[in-house]
Design a protein around this nucleic acid. Structure first.
Lengths: 343, 343
DNA sequence: CTCACAGCTGCAAGCGCTTCCAAAGTTCAC
DNA sequence: GTGAACTTTGGAAGCGCTTGCAGCTGTGAG
């Protein structure tokens, strides 16, 4: 396996010059640069990042911290991050910290803070201001996805706004009996998203002068199966049935549709359902939703990070609001006749 | 950030002794070992793997190559691998090589072969014998999941056997008009699984003396939505309808169930459906399936690898057949009366 | 009591790179 | 033609660790 020394010999240059030529840092004559590049190509030379990391402090490596790799949002982000990093020649170190705070702490402390990664992408992970300052202090840029990060850059969507828009969509169709399926409270600890989306829903309801009935505020764990169970309670229980459900994620919207079908309810004739995400399964279910390109968010996070690593280190901690797209399909319609209030 | 030097000073030992004490390699007195460990703990010292890698050639890092992170099998494996590696203090470098051969090649060549990982887990990736030999030649143990790897260790399930069992289950219920949904041919290039499962199906059909009708051999891309589209063709087309479908994955089985429901077919009364996987959604759909704990396969792969890295390097390239579990739920039943042949 | 040997320890030489520094070569204005 | 300023280059000192080697200590056999 050729080292930089071999390249230098072959190119008739010193190791130092080859290093500069290949990294693009420092002045190198055109002639030398070409020689070095040719020699490297001929030998199939590839930098050994660990050595380069030792010498320069840069790792060519980004840490991605996710709470799960199963749910749609997370696997989509992983995909976007992975593809973009690979293109840039960076390695991706994945930290799946699903199992509780203990591991989360050791990951942050042992792995991320120990110069093993150049930067951190934290997905739906609520870091304390102190933790963020610690990372920034040792020049590890950090960007968050799916939740604000105090003092750091974050890619986020307008959760409250799209929840408001989704709710308004139902209201404008004529619904007044609207349920909301939010994320589990346990889940909200690290991830304030359920609360934010719920706020958007409440705002829209209040604006329309509609009652928010507690029995129609249900929650699930963001999975199809979890939402399915919750929706069975909601739709099959003894309580009066809503005519529409706004679910805080597509997976939960799909779970709701499946439960509705179980009870013989037609979507959208008997029940309208709207979600948020842009899940691939949306089309199969004709799901009306708000598409937040999670893959794109991951890719953008990487581009932000790399820009910060290459260019001026002082990238302002600016939140970026990622655009979303309203996708109207066939899961939402006007409510059944007999439920429309007579004016 | 403390280095080994700081630990040595605090412990009143030499750097060399601390290194040996903490790594457990070489002779160190109990007294020194304790001192070193205490000093390290007090300072919150954590090895800087990149330096250790440079000196020793070991990276504390395993490369995981997956073709996708979205589909159930892959994200489950990632989860299992990730959790087990984290526990062992290893880093996980993820290579998602979805987009074609070009990237696949550069990943193998540049990343894996360049001493950047200690070992490789290849999921559903067909490596050539030459590629495998290359990896083994530089002492990078490699284990495959989801497909055989010529000359290397692999964790696999008895694909042909479980396909046979699944098919037999349908046959024993009395079905004779059985369709099979297999994986796309394009997908089979890297991953001979669809073919193997198909073989198991054919064997069972032949043994039972049942006809394998070409129009009932359909394929999809292993996703719910892809299978849904294929199943709509199968069930809604002009061809005679089968009474049972054996899908090569749970996701495809679910797609089939969804399509069946669209046509007003009841599962299992009008159509029996069986899958393979153990997908979390199986319960929602009452899906009869064969559970192959993918998470467990990932965990096992890591344990194999680490055993090989720590212990004798000469681990035999032994395939391990991972056990599966038949899970009977409510998606399979006897065929509709009018289709049962009269004896 | 002496010697052989094993257990422990520290020194120092790297691992493969980057980068500071000084020296050499070039350019240009005056 | 000369000096200042800039560009280009190579030598060499590390980056934080591991490990071969040699020395030192302590043990038990003879």
């Amino acid at each position: 396996m050729p080292g930089i020394k071999d390249v230098a010999e072959r190119a008739g240059l010193s190791i130092a010059t080859v290093s500069r030529a290949l990294s693009g840092k420092g002045n190198v004559s055109v002639r030398s640069r070409e020689r070095a590049q040719n020699a490297a190509a001929e030998l199939g030379f590839v930098l050994f990042y660990h050595a380069s990391s030792l010498a320069s402090g840069r790792n060519h490596n980004v840490g991605l911290v996710v709470p799960s790799v199963h749910r749609w949002f997370f696997s989509s982000v992983v995909e976007g991050v992975s593809a973009t990093l690979l293109d840039a020649g960076y390695d991706l170190t994945l930290y799946n910290v699903s199992e509780g705070q203990e591991r989360r702490h050791s990951v942050l402390n042992d792995f991320l803070l120990r110069k093993r990664v150049d930067a951190v992408i934290a997905v739906s992970l609520k870091l304390s201001a102190a933790e963020i300052q610690q990372l920034l202090a040792i020049h590890r840029p950090i960007v968050g996805i799916g939740g604000p990060l105090p003092g750091a850059t974050a890619i986020r969507i307008d959760d409250s706004g799209i929840a408001h828009a989704a709710s308004r969509h139902l209201i404008q169709l004529g619904h007044s009996m609207i349920a909301h399926m939010t994320g589990d409270a346990a889940y909200d600890k690290d991830f304030r998203l359920p609360g934010t989306r719920q706020a958007g829903f409440k705002k829209a309801m209040n604006e329309a002068g509609l009652a928010i009935r507690p029995e129609w505020q249900v929650s699930a764990d963001f999975t199809i199966q979890g939402a399915y169970a919750s929706a069975r309670q909601l739709l099959g229980g003894s309580v009066e049935r809503p005519t529409a459900v706004f679910a805080a994620s597509d997976e939960m919207a799909i779970g709701t549709i499946l439960a509705a079908r179980d009870f013989g309810l037609r979507v959208p004739e008997d029940l309208s359902v709207i979600g948020i995400d842009g899940h691939e399964l949306g089309e199969v279910f004709g799901l009306t939703t708000i598409d937040q390109d999670a893959r794109g968010q991951g890719a953008l996070a990487v581009r932000r990070l790399l820009a910060g690593l290459d260019g001026a280190g002082d990238t302002a901690a600016a939140d970026t609001e990622y655009p979303t797209r309203f996708v109207i399909r066939s899961s939402t319609a006007v409510p059944p006749m007999d439920t429309v209030p007579i004016h």
